[in-house]
Design a protein around this nucleic acid. Structure first.
Lengths: 236, 236
DNA sequence: CAGTGGTCTAGACCACTGG
DNA sequence: CAGTGGTCTAGACCACTGG
């Protein structure tokens, strides 16, 4: 006996259909048996046969159309995606996170910031630069611009164990995050802050990130990671 | 009348539940009305009420457990992901793709390659290096190692308009792709191939990618992009 | 027209949970 | 024990598609 546990009937039908697709017996575009045909051949109610096809459609294996039938779908090219995992969150999980404040100030918005925030030029904006540590290793340099309307107390924070991102997520959880990844050479000030000395180490992964809430900008960050320390992984 | 089109009843219930969750009336952990309660209050069969809760659970808004009920789920932190879009595919769409072969040869597997391929050291492996162009702009340098068992004719290809990845995807579509992104300084040979001159341009995004099919390695690539030309974008 | 999938009903039996 | 969600049935009506 291969499988002693009793499979639900809809699962049996799913495996039947999946088997024909994966084995190549039903190439892309093939019409599968209809709900009625499956319910007849598996001695099952139409609702059960329907559930099988429905779930396979949801998994992307089938395309269904009223009046036409169910068809083997074009497999979508598995587009690899990268999880922009939060390095700081990881370090905090291990209890080894700390943060050093380099700057924390109020500045007048320049043209670019004003545009991002829908502000007027010279309207005050908060700015902070930080170095984040995992134990005694500097893993990330950050420059963040914060909307003072959303986080009026930002400048009064200590930011020792609580990262600025964490603080902002607490008082104004973002519902939209835009990120861009590129490669940069660390600037001298960034190299110093990150403790990079040799030239070969100064290639860095840079993430720029805009966090929005209710369509208005909460913060805009530039995050710089030494390339030799951190990579972004992706599967599938 | 706000909505003239008739909503299915399960959709009405979904919106009712969603509304209570989004408005904060039902905070995380709150038990929602049961299938029976919803079917009574909406004068609907249990299967219809069930469908509403089921779909909300699938969307991640609810957690359900037999014997216990349905509960408002902890919202998962929207983890931003990056689509590792295929630069070459984009260039090809615009009809401006071309490819230059730098090397195309058979080499004996070193220890690392042998390990990746489950080969014996010194077993032959194909290797190619390429520069990919979008119009007359070099956008990507690639080194690829190919499993000769899977793609025996790899070395005989021309690779002018058909990219090596495209060729391999054609003869052996991969079902698993692992990618790693990091930042590197372009090596002199890469700099030359990509036409990079100034030092500030030599920070590059590097993607290493292993494509597998039926659990065995098809190809292993190192892709290098000049950082000033291409960024990876992510939303949500 | 006969057939398709989409929605829906009013039942049923089940394993499971808490009190 | 009464209540929960998971599976399933045998019907129904609908809008839609093709021949």
């Amino acid at each position: 006996m291969i499988n002693a546990i009793k499979l639900p009937q809809f699962e049996v039908i799913k495996q039947y259909v999946r088997g024909h697709i994966k084995s190549g017996h039903w190439p892309v575009g093939t019409r599968t048996p209809s709900e009625n045909e499956l319910s007849a051949s598996f001695s099952v109610s139409r609702m059960t046969a329907r559930r099988a096809l429905q779930e396979l459609a949801q998994e992307g294996l089938l395309t269904r159309a009223p009046g036409l039938g169910s068809f083997v779908a074009q497999p979508v090219a598995a587009q690899p995606t990268i999880q922009l995992y939060n390095i700081i969150a990881l370090a905090q999980l291990e209890g080894a996170y700390s943060c050093q404040v380099l700057d924390l100030e109020q500045i007048p918005a320049d043209a670019k910031l004003a545009h991002l925030l829908s502000f007027v030029v010279d309207q005050p904006v908060y700015r902070g630069t930080f170095v984040h540590f995992d134990r005694d290793k500097a893993v990330q340099w950050q420059e963040i611009f914060v909307n003072p309307v959303v986080a009026p107390a930002f400048l009064k924070q200590k930011f020792v164990k609580v990262a600025p991102d964490e603080y902002l997520e607490w008082i104004a959880p973002s519902d939209q995050v835009n990120s861009q990844v590129s490669a940069v050479l660390a600037k001298p000030s960034q190299r110093r802050a990150l403790g990079l000395t040799e030239d070969t180490q100064s290639a860095c992964l840079q993430v720029t990130r805009a966090c929005k809430r209710h369509s208005s900008l909460v913060s805009f960050s530039t995050l710089v990671h030494p390339a030799n320390l951190y990579q972004l992984g992706a599967t599938s």
